[in-house]
Design a binder for these strands. Sequence first.
DNA 1: TTGTAATTAATGTATAAACATTTAATTTTG
DNA 2: CAAAATTAAATGTTTATACATTAATTACAA
Lengths: 153, 153
Amino acid sequence: MMSISDEIKQSSFKNEETKAVINLIFTGNFIVQRQQAFMKPFGITMQQFNVLRILEGQKGQAISVLSITERMLDKMSNASRLVDKLFAKKLVSRVPCEKDRRAVDVYILPAGSALINQIEVHLDEFRKQISQLGEENLKQLNELLDQFRASIS
Amino acid sequence: MMSISDEIKQSSFKNEETKAVINLIFTGNFIVQRQQAFMKPFGITMQQFNVLRILEGQKGQAISVLSITERMLDKMSNASRLVDKLFAKKLVSRVPCEKDRRAVDVYILPAGSALINQIEVHLDEFRKQISQLGEENLKQLNELLDQFRASIS
DNA sequence: TTGTAATTAATGTATAAACATTTAATTTTG
DNA sequence: CAAAATTAAATGTTTATACATTAATTACAA
C-alpha cells in the first residue's frame, strides 16, 4: 500500500500531527481530482454538481443563493456565478424572491434533476469501490475527521 | 461538536462512504484555508511554501523541477511557475543542469531557509492545537487515510 | 548514424478562485 | 420617519489552476 510517505516521497515527518495535516490535504486533493475527472464527461464541474445536489435536496422548494453558499463544501467559491453557469445550461431557474427582493430564489429544473440522477448512479459505483474500507472503518474515519476539525476551531 | 452534517447543513447521507468522501473534502478544504490564512502575513502561498519545504529538505542539494512536481501535494499545479515566483522573491536560485541540459537545478537560498524556518516555528504551534486529538487517534487517522486511498486506486 | 520518440521545462490560454467593491433592498436606530 | 447599518446578490479584478502546446535536449531504434 502507498502510504503518504511514499506518495510524496518524504521519508519521515516531524510528528504525527504534521503527517495527519499533510495526509488530509493530500487525500482531499486525491478525491477531488478523481471526482473532477469523473464529472467531466457530463459537462459540469464538481462545484456545479454540488450546487445541483443542494437544489435537488430541496425537493422542488426554492432556495436563496446565500443558503446555497452555506451548504457548500467550499464556502469561498461564488455561488452566484455557479448558479449562473447552471442557468446558462438550463439546469436551474432563477426568480427574484417576492418576500425579500434582494434575494433570488433558485429552483432545479427537470433537466437538472435528470442530469444529477444520471450522475448519481455512476457516482455510487465510484463510491462503492471505497466500501472496501469497511463500514466500521468508515465510521471511525468520519468520527476522527469531525474530532479533528473540532480540535482546531 | 460540529459534525460534518451540521457543517454543511445536510441532515443525512445516503451511506457511510458518501459521508466519508464529503467529510474528507470538507476537512481538506478546512485545513488548506486555515493554512492559507496563516501564510498570508509571510507573503507566500501554501503552494510556494511547500516547494520551499521540499527544497529545504534537500539540505543544499539541487533538485530538478520535475522532482519537485513528484514531491508536491498537488501534482497538477505548475512547479515551473511556482519556482518562478520564489525566484522573483530571491528565495531560490535556478541553474541549468550540466548533466542534462533540459533540466534545471533549483536550490534554496539562505533567505529562503530563513523564511521557512520562521514559518515552521509558528506552524508547529498551529499543529500543536491538533494534538488534542491524541497520538493514538492521529495514527489511526493516518492509517485510515492511507487505506482509503488504496481502496480507490 | 539518423530519424523518431520521449523527456524536461517553459509558455499560452481559457477558466476558475479569491477577494474587494458595488448596487439594491431591508432592518435598525436615533 | 429618516439616516445609518446591514444584508443579498452581482460584478470587477487580480491571481491561480488546468490543461495543451512548444522548444530544446536526450534516448532509442532501424
